[in-house]
Write a protein that binds this DNA or RNA. Structure first.
Lengths: 91, 91
DNA sequence: TAATTTTGTATATTTTAATTGTCAAAAATG
DNA sequence: CATTTTTGACAATTAAAATATACAAAATTA
């Protein structure tokens, strides 16, 4: 059971923020949803859903981040976090 | 067109690393895939696919990260990146 | 302001992630 | 070592993401 004290940020908040990120990356390059979609072999609506915080797939998100050279940095972030630490001590 | 010089990390690499991260978080708490799945109303196979780097949805990934209190930090990371910067100058 | 482009929304279809159940291999436990 | 638990893999079904098309609202541009 998730403790409300530690649960201020919701899953939907993160999805919306990810959408905003992708949108800002696209706008920065002056691309339309259609142009970006064509570059990545994704439909314009898939881009639109991602940017509006719908429940996209990892492929869709990562293709977009990769296109704007943001995937490598995210990869580093994850890599540091995923060092396999010892399981919680029983004592 | 993506430049190979900047494309060393592949989408599949990030998915696999995300899977490793989720797996290490689960192991640290001494939980089984089944137990985690039940906690999040996800099937054991959905957890298994996520951990093995398949193409999961954002909901699946974020539910898991949220359960281990890792979503808030990721949210901060994204928030910093998604400040809407001015579009590329035309000059 | 008028014309053009882009975006959000809606519906229908296709593709695929998620689920359910089962089974054997692998790992953990007594 | 034997038993139990966990995990990875296989199929079949269900739920939902991705697609295609169309249209109006919004934003951009001339």
């Amino acid at each position: 059971m998730d403790n409300i004290l530690f649960d201020v940020v919701k899953v939907s908040d993160v999805k919306e923020q990810l959408g905003q990120w992708c949108k800002s990356l696209r706008k920065r390059q002056g691309l339309s949803q259609d142009e970006l979609g064509k570059s990545l072999n994704l439909s314009r609506l898939t881009i639109q859903h991602l940017e509006s915080g719908k429940n996209s797939t990892l492929d869709t998100l990562l293709k977009v981040l990769n296109h704007f050279q943001e995937m490598d940095e995210l990869y580093q972030y994850i890599q540091v976090k995923s060092v396999n630490q010892a399981p919680k001590s029983l004592y």
